[in-house]
Simulated scan of single mutants.
Amino acid sequence: MDTAELRRALEDAELSPYQADAYTALLRLGSASATELADACSVPTARIYDVLRDLEAKGYIETYEQDSLHARANEPQAVLTSLRGKAERFTAAAAEIEERWEQPAVDGHMVSIVKRFETVFDRACDIVREAETEVQVSATAEQFRRLRPALATAYDNGAIVSVSIHSDSGTTADELPDTRAYDGIATEVRHRRLPAPFIVLVDRNETCFTPHARSVNRYGVLVDDYTLTYVFHWYFQTCLWEVWEPMYDARPTEPPLVYADIRRFVREIEPLLEDGTTVRVAVEGFDTESGEAVSFAGTLVDVSYAGSSTNGEPPLSQLAGETALTIAVDGETRTVGGWGAVIEDVEAIRLTVEALT
């Protein structure tokens, strides 16, 4: 760093141009009279005494009388400590500015657009740990490995965890996590053999999204909204889940059978109902008029959906519209819908088949 750069740095720290010029000159001279120092720098003689007093007050120099006013630079340790402290604060401030620019707070925002994948991933970990009902994940094998601790917490919370592992078409089974890696982590795992976005959907209200690695545009979307998350849910169901075969399935085959998705419930339970099986089901959800939480148990009476009934499981396309259950409870019937229910009595967030007889 040359003298001019040193002067500019001192000015950025706390000194005026005259003070920085006089101090750097005094460092060069060691000690000097006021008039000698004025001759060695750009400070006018009429101003040099004020400049020296200011530098002494700041601790940069000391003055003494020797026929005339003289000055010498102080031991620089205090100055160095001050300058280094300022440098650290500037560095910390720069890092904070960068962080706040790249990671706007999600609180109070329905949708936030961010630039870094790590911002999206960190947010995904946070919301997954708080999940209580359902988690849906689209991730690469490596992203899944990094997300495992958060998914384990959600699984322990009782959430249904559906994971779509995506990879290139040439990926072999040996390159995917061993099935034991899903124990206590996921309820069901499927393998999509095409690139896909990173998506995490939690409890019908929160979404974390980034385009797949080959996308031209690099950005992230953080959503805290019921309706927008429902849109991402249907993308997940149709493109990342429905057409791919399970590679891991920890769902029980005997009651209690737990569902977070009414359409999955209908596809698997309607054939049993048509065969004359009595289905005892518990419902947890919200009253569609009051919004209050409700829970009850009863006997499944009927299922209805927009498509026509078929033998076996109805395809997802027939369940994309209105899908509802009719449940007998204490001599009355209640209608139950799924995510987004409007005309039914209850929007179910969890359905549990308690008994099949």
Rank of each mutant, 00 (worst) to 15 (best):
D2P: 03
D2Q: 07
L10D: 02
A22Q: 07
A22T: 04
A22R: 06
L27Q: 15
L29N: 07
S42G: 09
I48F: 07
R53F: 05
A57F: 06
K58H: 06
G59P: 05
Y60H: 02
Y60E: 01
Y64G: 03
D67K: 12
R84K: 11
R89P: 04
F90L: 15
T91S: 13
A95Y: 07
R100M: 14
W101A: 13
P104F: 07
V106N: 05
V111Q: 12
V111A: 11
S112K: 09
I113P: 00
F117A: 11
V135F: 03
Q136C: 15
E142D: 14
L147A: 08
R148K: 15
P149Q: 11
I160E: 00
V163M: 10
I165E: 00
T171A: 15
T172S: 15
D183R: 14
I185A: 01
A186L: 13
P195C: 12
F198P: 04
L201I: 10
C208I: 06
R214I: 12
G220R: 02
V223A: 08
F232P: 01
H233R: 12
E242K: 12
A260V: 07
R267A: 15
D275H: 06
D275Q: 14
V279T: 03
V294G: 03
G307P: 06
G307W: 10
S308K: 08
T310H: 03
E313D: 09
E313W: 03
P314N: 09
Q318N: 10
A324Y: 02
A328E: 15
G331H: 11
W339A: 08
G340S: 14
A341T: 05
V342K: 11
D345E: 13
E347F: 06
E347V: 06
E354K: 13
A355D: 15
